[in-house]
Simulated assay, not measured.
Amino acid sequence: MRLALVAYLHGAGGAERQIILLGNEMKKRGHDVHLLILAENKSNYDIADGVHIYDLSVVEHGGKFDIIKRYFALRKWLKKIHPEITINYNLQGAYFSMLLGNRICGKILYSERGDPYDKEYSGVLGHVRDITCKKVDALVFQSEGARDFFEIGEKQKAIVIHNSVVVPQDKYPIPSARDNRIVTVGRLHSQKNPQLLVDAFALIADIYPDMTLEFYGDGDLKEEIQSIINSKGLSERVHLHASRKDIFDCIRTARLFVLTSDYEGMPNALMEAMALGLPCISTDCRPGGARTLIKSGKNGIIVPPRNVNALVDKMMYMLENPREAELMAIEAYKIGTTHTNVVTFDKWNQFLISIL
């Protein structure tokens, strides 16, 4: 198949990683893969040899007509590529593809990567999303919760495919000893609600004087979160680290991994923590990806979002009951075999074949 993947590579996010992985894995399976990069090209993820790359972000210069330039650049190259399927992980790309039509794009697929219930879709953008999703040929969702939001047309094909997790478990067995750290990984952004974790840690800091809290990730809330940390007198115990390529080595021996997001498509950081064998707590973030991964009390713990007391209660439970925490970590570790690239992208491959 000749596949066009329309990518917005804003940085080290999950959607960026997953669309590049999709391109790489489809190339391995013998498909002719074309990656068209719009808006920004800031991702450091490796793109496989043989994937054709078109950096269309070079036509943009921060002006008011950039979106028009973006549309026509995409139109130009899709006409030359003439794909059998155009795959979009971003609503704008899917909308552009819908406008261009099947003669240029082939079959049009949209994969919802965020939270369809989010308030950003309450206005005009919501109408654009609804129109687009009714017109595309196929839809891929990361979670059952996201799928349940949409009405699938009789002529449309749709499937739920969870993200893959890439942790070399031969290199990273479950550690035999843990250090007194609570860790989290993700952008310092309102979506991730980092303050909730700082507030929760502040309430247990005196009970566990040897425990530290470590954030790994950049973001526009860094100064604000650091100010909150300082105001609570925790500057020596709560540390804000930049994003790291060696993140597995940084977090694998921690006592606890905590995700406090308000919403996530499918939380890649949580999946990696589970595949490293970390005891995990996650908020029940919309639209249900964490709940899909964690069976609370069996392979981790789910808590209500934005509820500091519930989070504190479960953090203390994990810290006070290390044996139970380790049993959950052992169960969580199994995600490393159930959500491999082979499993995930074989499903993608079969679905793409089915929509032609």
Rank of each mutant, 00 (worst) to 15 (best):
R2L: 10
A4H: 02
Y8T: 15
Y8G: 12
L9M: 10
G11H: 03
G14C: 06
R17F: 13
N24V: 00
N24R: 00
N24I: 01
M26W: 02
M26C: 03
K28Q: 15
H34V: 09
I37V: 15
L38K: 01
E40Q: 09
N41G: 11
K42M: 10
D46N: 09
D46S: 11
D49H: 04
I53N: 13
Y54D: 14
V58K: 08
H61W: 01
G63Y: 02
G63L: 02
K64I: 15
K64A: 14
K79G: 15
K80P: 14
E84L: 03
Y89V: 14
Y95M: 11
M98H: 07
C105H: 02
I108T: 11
L109G: 06
Y117N: 15
S122D: 15
G123V: 10
G123D: 12
G126F: 03
R129A: 15
R129W: 02
D130S: 13
D130K: 07
T132D: 12
T132I: 12
C133W: 06
K135M: 13
V136Q: 05
V140N: 04
V140K: 01
Q142Y: 07
S143A: 12
G145H: 00
A146K: 00
A146C: 06
A146E: 07
F149K: 09
F150G: 14
I152A: 05
G153V: 04
K157P: 14
S164C: 10
V165M: 04
V165L: 07
P168H: 08
K171P: 01
R178V: 02
R181Y: 07
V183W: 00
S190H: 05
N193I: 03
N193P: 06
L196D: 12
V198L: 04
D199M: 03
A202R: 00
L203A: 14
I204V: 13
I204Q: 09
D206H: 00
I207M: 12
L213M: 05
L221P: 14
K222M: 14
E223K: 04
E224R: 00
Q226M: 06
Q226I: 08
K232S: 11
G233S: 08
L240R: 04
H241Q: 08
R244D: 14
F248V: 13
F248I: 12
C250T: 04
I251W: 04
R252P: 06
R252C: 11
T253G: 08
V258A: 03
L259K: 02
T260Q: 03
S261M: 01
E264I: 08
E264Q: 05
M266Y: 03
L276I: 05
S282R: 02
D284G: 03
P287W: 00
P287Y: 01
I294D: 13
I302Y: 09
I302M: 13
P305D: 07
P305V: 10
N307I: 07
M315W: 05
M316L: 08
L319Q: 06
P322V: 05
A325E: 06
E326Y: 07
L327R: 04
M328L: 09
M328N: 10
M328S: 11
E331K: 02
E331N: 11
Y333F: 15
T338Y: 03
N341G: 08
N341E: 10
F345K: 00
F345C: 09
K347P: 14
N349L: 08
Q350C: 12
Q350L: 10
F351I: 15
